[in-house]
Computed example of a mutant assay.
Amino acid sequence: MLEKLEFLVDKYQDLNSKISDPEIISNTQEWQKYVKEHAEIEPIVVKYREYKEVVEQLEEAKEMLQDKLEDDFKEMVKLEVNELTQKSEELTEELKMLLVPKDPNDDKNVIVEIRAGAGGDEAGIFAGDLFRMYSRFTEKQRWKIDIMSCNNQGVGGFKEVIFMVKGKGAYSKLKYESGVHRVQRVPATESGGRIHTSTATVAVLPEADDIDIDINMNDVRVDVYRSSGNGGQSVNTTDSAVRLTHEPTGIVVACQDEKSQLKNKDKAFKILKARLYDKKLAEQNAEIAQARKSQVGSGDRSAKIRTYNFPQGRITDHRINMTVYKLDAFLDGDIHEMIDALITTDQAERLQEIES
Rank of each mutant, 00 (worst) to 15 (best):
G192M: 14
D14P: 01
S26V: 05
D72T: 10
K11W: 08
F7Y: 12
L99Q: 07
V81E: 01
L351I: 05
V46P: 08
V165H: 02
R185W: 09
K273A: 02
Y171L: 06
Q261V: 05
Q153H: 07
A170R: 01
V165G: 01
P43S: 02
F158M: 02
Q233C: 03
S260Y: 05
Q284P: 05
L281R: 15
T307R: 04
D346H: 10
L15S: 06
I145A: 01
D223P: 10
Q352L: 13
R314M: 03
V112C: 05
D107I: 13
F73R: 09
S198P: 04
E70G: 12
F269G: 04
K52A: 04
L331K: 06
T189C: 05
I251Q: 01
G231I: 03
E160G: 02
D106H: 11
S20L: 12
I211D: 13
L8G: 05
Q141C: 08
R132S: 00
V54S: 07
A303C: 08
T307H: 06
D103S: 06
E139V: 03
K280S: 12
S260E: 02
E258C: 07
R132F: 00
K326R: 13
R221K: 15
A303I: 12
V235R: 08
A118I: 15
K4T: 14
V220D: 07
G193A: 06
N309F: 03
V222G: 08
G120D: 01
L262C: 00
I44N: 11
E349H: 12
L84G: 01
F126D: 04
I195W: 10
K11G: 06
W143M: 05
I288W: 10
K140H: 13
W143Y: 10
M76Q: 14
M133H: 04
E6N: 15
A289F: 09
T92S: 14
M338K: 09
Q32S: 14
E160S: 07
L276D: 00
D214P: 06
E50H: 13
V9I: 14
T189G: 03
H246M: 02
E190L: 05
V180Y: 09
N321V: 08
V296I: 15
T199C: 05
R319Q: 08
L15V: 00
H196E: 03
M217L: 14
D67H: 09
E42Q: 15
D71G: 04
L98E: 08
R142A: 13
S227M: 00
K263R: 15
K68N: 14
T92Q: 14
P206G: 01
N82G: 13
Q261M: 09
K108Q: 11
Q233P: 07
P22T: 02
V252Y: 05
E30T: 11
Y176S: 00
R319D: 11
G154K: 11
H196N: 10
Q66G: 11
D14W: 07
V161P: 01
I213D: 02
